[in-house]
């Protein structure tokens, strides 16, 4: 069976062969299946960004192999180039990549590199802009005239327009206000629902991952420390804490409530759900 992304015994070192050699990834084995929405979580410096840079061959593993859609990236240059379009990588603060005169042309940069026809490119630009919720009149503006949140959307649209099989987003909500953050996150789950693509979401925020992901991969010191469903991973709250991570605040409240003897579920990851449960409890008590 082929996976969209498969890593076999991948290790990566920075400055190999020098006294400054640092192991950024240690013997990583990872399979991400078709249509999954996987969240990668980890403390700063745990190797998240190094890991996703392997998915499209920006970094080559020092040891092991990266297999994208059944093809080893080490095979030849064409395979590597094809991987750039199969795996759409959207880095942290992607608005830093905007450069064209208009938003539309910037979104078209990726598809143009794929050597698509002009009509196809136009079609994709419109579709991607609609996906991220950019109004059509913004498309003819300069990307530098957009607001911060709009820039972020335009940059994400630039990656989406390549219609990759796998969309990888590194901290897509970093630096946005709570409203903008929720919009981006719901946009991502919407994208996954409508296209059926595989999505990998990198974040250090447990709340973000819990609200959208089916599967959570926890990175710690260059290794995969945990890999499972949201419930499975969050049930190891002590271990997570030792890695400098934590379960969402609302979950912590509910865990504490359970310790105090209240009959509440432990798998509460969003404030909305938590509030609903608490309201019901209070209502029941007052009855």
């Amino acid at each position: 069976m082929t996976y969209p992304i498969e890593l076999r015994n991948v290790s990566y070192y920075y400055s190999p062969g020098t006294p400054l050699q640092v192991a950024a990834l240690k013997n990583i084995n990872l399979k991400i299946g078709e249509g999954e929405l996987a969240g990668i979580i980890g403390h700063t410096g745990s190797g998240k960004s190094t890991l996703i840079s392997h998915f499209n061959g920006l970094l080559r593993p020092v040891e092991g192999s990266v297999i994208i859609d059944g093809e080893d990236l080490a095979k030849d240059k064409e395979t590597l180039r094809a991987a750039r379009f199969k795996v759409g990588l959207c880095f942290q603060y992607p608005e830093a990549q905007l450069f064209e005169e208009t938003v539309a042309r910037d979104i078209a940069f990726g598809p143009k590199n794929m050597k698509l026809s002009d009509e196809e490119i136009n079609e994709r630009v419109k579709k991607a802009a609609e996906f991220v919720g950019l109004k059509p009149e913004l498309l003819e503006k300069s990307p530098f005239d957009l607001s911060g949140g709009e820039k972020r959307r335009a940059a994400i649209a630039g990656v989406m327009a390549m219609e990759p099989k796998v969309l990888v987003l590194d901290e897509p909500a970093a630096g946005l206000d709570p409203g903008g953050k929720n919009e981006i996150l719901s946009m991502i789950s919407e994208y996954k629902k409508r296209t059926g693509c595989t999505v990998v979401l990198v974040s250090h925020s447990m709340e973000d991952i819990a609200s959208v992901a089916d599967r959570v991969i926890v990175m710690n010191a260059g290794t995969i420390a945990m890999d499972g469903t949201v419930d499975e991973v969050f049930s190891h709250s002590a271990e997570l804490r030792s890695m400098g991570l934590n379960v969402p605040e609302i979950t912590r409240i509910f865990i504490r409530l359970r310790e105090l003897g209240y009959d509440v579920p432990a798998d509460v990851y969003s404030v909305e759900k938590g509030a609903q449960i608490l309201r019901e409890m209070i209502r029941r008590r007052s009855v």
Partner: peptide, 16 residues
């Protein structure tokens, strides 16, 4: 560092 970051982002969009 900034150049490296931007280069990676554009390479990810298929810049040759």
């Amino acid at each position: 560092e900034e150049i490296e970051r931007i280069m990676n982002a554009q390479k990810a969009r298929g810049a040759d």
